[in-house]
Design a protein around this nucleic acid. Structure first.
Lengths: 227, 227
DNA sequence: CGCGGCTTTGATGTTCATCAAGTAAAGTGG
DNA sequence: CCACTTTACTTGATGAACATCAAAGCCGCG
């Protein structure tokens, strides 16, 4: 177990609840942790999948490179939320990229080791299945839901996501550009700006550059739901 | 093993490749098979998840009931393609419904038995993980891809799906209504009809009610790709 | 035979993308 | 550190894409 501290990691419960002490030691000693600064590319689409990765702290975006210089953001993710389960067991190479939106730290465990553990430890395997099931189910639901909303509803949804799920308060600095919001919810940058301005004029939010202050959260929820 | 015939089933390779003979016997004897007619509801959103199910023959649609009398179709599926993996390991109740688009037969295996097997048999567990990974990855990719296309591109996509992936020929009877196509690709019934008519006028397809004959598949592929 | 759901077409209006043009902010090299 | 360049942000004008509304024919089914 040498200088390994997984035993006390908050995130241990995420995956390794059912891993015996001996096995945890194995995972832990092979584990690597890396730091990324805001804007850094963490995983590049098309490269070989070698590791099972999960976010320890920070905020990231998963996105597809569409080739023509455009990106399509699949989702934003935080610790306990980003776990690289999307296609790592079915593909040889990544079908999307991951980049840091805020300073982040990430743990790496060799994917071969994880595969070995799946074969050996049924409880671990079942845990992983459950997690994968939940993550992909949520992603599919969210994607379908956003697709049904009009543009105002989509912007309201994004603002509420940051307020409720990321920063837990109605005032926050947007960690993403207007363009990135557009890439997440399938609309143009101009319309993101236009609708934010509309919300400002309607007294629903205040805007100071990246800073957003939600004034009327009820109204925003209405728009998100029925928009 | 009594009157059990899973041993020779084509679909055995789908899941039970790595299941020992003894275990397969257990699965097989608890297995149930049911027949459904076109239009039948097979799984109802909100009901308890008791079984692991997979399609032996036929064609089905997975959809969400949006409450206001509207449906949102998640995807169509065929044998080898529909396996109920989407949320069965993370939820207690179904978050979507499944209905038969053509006469179909479906196998049921108790989900508790499957869970037991996952815990006991790492190879089986890994197989399932891979399958789930592939299915959900494809679904996410398809959903995002369709969202980027304009209406003509989406219709072209659906026609090519039936021609290439379901019937394997350029002439076929649509197993779905215009309304159901609209529910799959997020548009109105009127526009589905309008665009089909446009394709007819442009000499790309012929239409006789439900029957579609693709005349110019190259053109359709162009529209699907760049539309 | 009549009723309801499916299909079709047209007319109309709304929503949204595109184009254009300018300001502010942020990174870059001397 | 400042001039320069690039990138992000903002607003308005315009047109295209798409939804909605309306009306009528068709088909299957009780």
């Amino acid at each position: 177990m040498n200088n390994c501290n997984c035993e006390n990691c908050q995130l241990k419960s995420l995956f390794f609840e059912n891993v015996a002490e001996k096995e945890l030691g194995l995972l832990c000693s092979s584990r690597q942790e890396r730091q990324y600064s805001k804007g850094d590319l963490m995983i590049e689409q098309g490269t070989e999948i070698r590791d099972f990765t999960y976010l320890k702290s920070g905020l990231v975006k998963l996105y597809k490179d569409l080739g023509n210089g455009h990106h399509q953001i699949i989702k934003f993710a935080r610790p306990f939320d980003f776990v690289n389960l999307l296609s790592i067991f079915s593909e040889k190479t990544y079908r999307y990229s991951v980049a840091a939106l805020e300073d982040s730290s990430v743990c790496y465990v060799s994917i071969d080791l994880v595969k070995e553990l799946i074969h050996r430890n049924g409880n671990f395997a079942f845990d992983l299945l459950q997690k994968m099931s939940r993550i992909t189910d949520d992603l599919i639901n969210t994607t379908l839901e956003i697709g049904r909303k009009n543009l105002r509803g989509r912007i309201a949804y994004v603002l509420l996501y940051f307020a409720n799920s990321v920063y837990n308060k109605p005032e926050f600095d947007l960690p993403v550009s207007r363009k990135e919001i557009a890439e997440l919810i399938e609309m143009t940058t101009e319309n993101v700006i236009r609708i934010l301005s509309e919300f400002r004029k309607d007294g629903i939010i205040k805007i100071y550059g990246k800073r957003i202050e939600i004034e009327n959260i009820k109204m925003l929820e209405q728009i998100a739901q029925f928009g």
